[in-house]
Design a protein around this nucleic acid. Structure first.
Lengths: 161, 161
DNA sequence: CCTGAAATAATATAACC
DNA sequence: GGTTATATTATTTCAGG
């Protein structure tokens, strides 16, 4: 991964509809080698996918709730089951295992508080949780899918990881 | 927005590289009307953009930190300034104004704890914050950009909002 | 608003230096 | 890495239901 790959990634994180020829121009390459780089980045899994980003408000997903969870059990089996259950909820868009006070943190997306309560009820019914605390977001001030590329380690010989 | 638009959105949220002809087939349309629907969804802003999703680990953005912030001032001017500053940090990928105990919540993405500390220092140097609390994620168990479409309100006459 | 055909323009992909 | 073909797709147009 070198400087040019980084530039390409930056562009594709911004706008994945850019034509390869456009990207090539901006990066200072001709289209074929640029295309080959993009292929490689996809094969290596650096680029995982290309997706459409929707406007949450326009699909009635206006409210974000952060759900802090403290659990009873800490077994691997319990976590497996928990992950499975959470995976079934399309309203849960992010799910982290945390250090410290809270064991897990969920970001849940719903149209309103009532819908959140329904999700909450379904969730605690499916799985045993010791303690749940919900925090509501009033406003999403920033949201991006763009990873910071400032920490990328560049290499002359594009290695995989 | 009708049932077919919803299907289209579902597909494009999954994979934005699908050819219009493919989508059309899966949705049960021929390509021209399907293409027109996609155009319309873009014009209406339901589809905001198409982006490449990178593997955080492969671009050295392995660590997620949630930063809870309590502020000194609650003025609109302060928030404007705060938003501006936060916007300059590519490491801050999500930023919410919260209700309740915490005023703001940030999701910060960095390679490691040391890098987080550097971000933290830069941040509190640029802006006056009363209280900051950082929680580290040990593992990202789920992350998706797909909004749940179960709450979409369908209409015979595709209206804008 | 839909189907389907058909023509054109843009782009991706492949072959070759 | 570049240039030049070729194959796919997107995009537009048209006739008709």
């Amino acid at each position: 991964m070198d400087r040019l790959d980084k530039k390409i990634l930056r562009l594709l994180q911004e706008d994945a509809t850019l034509a390869v020829a456009d990207i090539a121009k901006r990066v200072g390459l001709s289209t074929t080698p640029c295309w080959r780089r993009i292929q490689k980045l996809e094969e290596e899994g650096v680029i995982k996918r290309r997706v459409a980003i929707l406007d949450p408000a326009k699909v009635n997903a206006r409210v974000t709730v952060f759900v802090s969870i403290r659990v009873a059990s800490h077994s691997a089996e319990w976590l497996r089951r928990f992950s499975e259950v959470v995976g079934e909820f399309p309203e849960v868009v992010e799910f982290y295992r945390m250090s410290g006070d809270v064991d897990y943190l969920l970001r849940v997306v719903v149209p309103d508080i009532a819908a959140y309560d329904a999700v909450y009820q379904r969730l605690i019914q499916k799985i045993d949780i010791r303690d749940v605390s919900s925090s509501f977001a009033m406003e999403q001030i920033k949201y991006t899918t763009q990873m910071p590329l400032d920490y990328l380690v560049l290499d002359k010989d594009s290695r995989e990881s």
